[in-house]
Amino acid sequence: MKALDSFNPLAVFVYFMASAGIAMFSMDPVILLLSMLGAVTLFVIRREGRQTGTHLFSLFLFLTLTVINPLFQHNGRTVLFVLNDNPITLEALLYGADAAAMVVSVLYWFRSFSSIITSDKLLYLFGLLSPKPALMISMALRFVPLFRMQAKRTDMAQRALGKYKEDNAIDFIRMKLSVFSIMVSWALENGIITADSMAARGYGTGRRTCFSPYKFRPQDALLLGLSLMLAGAVGAAMALGGLEFAFYPTVSKISPDFLRLAAYIAYALLSFLPATIEIGDALKWQYLRSRI
């Protein structure tokens, strides 16, 4: 299920900044729980990378980050036990779990973000801002595989010359260093040729534009609009003090007032928006296939 990959990068970028950003800057446990659920759901239904390994790592990180806080922070009323004359409090432990949930859910958001916003889409986003860094990004990205290829060629040529013994470690390192040195000289000279060719073809004579295969379709506008609106609603609730939550000296109770509930609903919608898009797309696909 890769429906989000076909969305306009700008809309996807804004969405992830909104969902991860609110999680990052909020301390409310319900918001963080929603963020965690949304991020993990998205990661699971997109079937990115190594699933079990990632989840195990996240669990380990969550537990570690949870225990770190009470070791350094001794505020709070409810003392669980005393370690080296320092009280370990329930409040500090819960604060640690809160912060850990924030870190782990943001990591999950960014895993999906990285798989959707690939380097070519980043290029498009940079191109909107400023063309010169965008050009440099596209060149640097192109040079990476080129250099790898050229390094392989140089390496083979050096081996064929037979100047270096392969079973001798010092000779091997010397060969690698000389390959690297040749590579750097070649890369710089090649860069000059590229630059001259660009100049010959009129680079810098007019206003630079960036090629973009990404159209802005109605569904992109919808995603962008919904992200901004829902994030704005949560942000407004935060600004009005609706999501204030304290851990010290005692953990505050969540009172179900209007502002808080509205913020929760808005963030729940925001958090599950991409998962809904992916599932909706999969259902549509299944329906279309069933008609064949």
């Binding site: 440099m136 060149m139 040079f143 090649n190 860069g191 000059i192 590229t194």
Partner: peptide
């Protein structure tokens, strides 16, 4: 030229 060299 400088631009390309920095990219390199």
């Amino acid at each position: 030229r400088r631009l390309v060299i920095v990219s390199v």
